[in-house]
């Protein structure tokens, strides 16, 4: 078990020593969100109706931006090879890396999301729904994104490719998340949506690290 904690500690340490990789996607998230009112106009009715979609899509894109940082650094300086050849199981290390990546990207965005919901005149139920939805949705995105990151290791123009590979797989999470906020804003209960998001999360916890681990071995095989 301690290899999991050691991996999380190591990765968080690395993230804090090089905050740019983490802060840039968050700033990107902030800017993208504030572009929409400028583009669409400040009218309350319009903004509150598109709030959920805008925030979720912004989170989606920001997660994609920050996902290849998770493995690329280790791949370039050869440490990923050492991890793959270590006695500890690569699966656990991958899981630890995904958790630490989520903590510095999706988790932060989920915490910040009520602030931006206010910018879009979303009522309090909506804000809570966005935060809860993101808390459940962003780990799934990071998990699925890590498969794309592992598959495109070592490719020159890997960044854009990850988006093409992984975005279609994000669609169920996006649909459930936005629908959840919509029903919350109208005061209906959204536990059903939350349970579905949780189910998707559990499914990707089960499968994604397995696929990522195999993809890492495939990408290292060059």
């Amino acid at each position: 078990m301690n290899i999991l904690l050691a991996t999380i500690r190591r990765d968080l340490l690395l993230h804090f020593r090089q905050p740019a990789d983490i802060l840039n996607p968050l700033v990107f998230f902030l800017i993208v969100i504030s572009l929409f009112p400028l583009g669409i106009g400040p009218s309350e009715a319009v903004l509150s109706s598109i709030a959920a979609g805008v925030i979720w899509v912004a989170v989606l894109l920001a997660t994609l931006l920050s996902i290849d940082v998770m493995l690329k650094g280790d791949f370039d300086d050869g440490t990923l090879e050492q991890i793959a050849l270590g006695k500890q199981s690569l699966l656990v290390v991958v899981f630890g890396k995904v958790i630490s990546q989520w903590l510095v990207s999706g988790f932060l965005m989920a915490l910040m999301s009520p602030l931006f919901a206010m910018m879009f005149y979303v009522n309090t139920e909506g804000m809570i729904a966005i935060a809860v939805g993101l808390l459940l949705g962003t780990p799934t995105m990071t998990l699925i994104g890590s498969i794309g990151a592992a598959l495109t290791l070592g490719l020159k123009k890997g960044g854009v490719l990850i988006a093409i590979l992984v975005l279609p797989l994000y669609i169920p999470v996006l649909i459930l998340g936005t629908a959840m906020v919509e029903s919350a804003v109208f005061g209906h209960s959204y536990t059903g949506h939350a349970l579905w998001l949780a189910a998707l999360l559990v499914l990707s916890i089960g499968f994604a690290p397995l696929a990522t681990q195999m993809s890492i071995r495939i990408s290292l095989s060059q």
Partner: peptide, 21 residues
């Protein structure tokens, strides 16, 4: 092998995407 992995991952997600749409 990388493309095969992507195709299999896509296949697992296909029904989920279908039902959510």
């Amino acid at each position: 092998r990388a493309t095969a992995m992507l195709a299999v991952v896509g296949l697992i997600n296909l029904p989920i995407i279908k039902y959510s749409v």
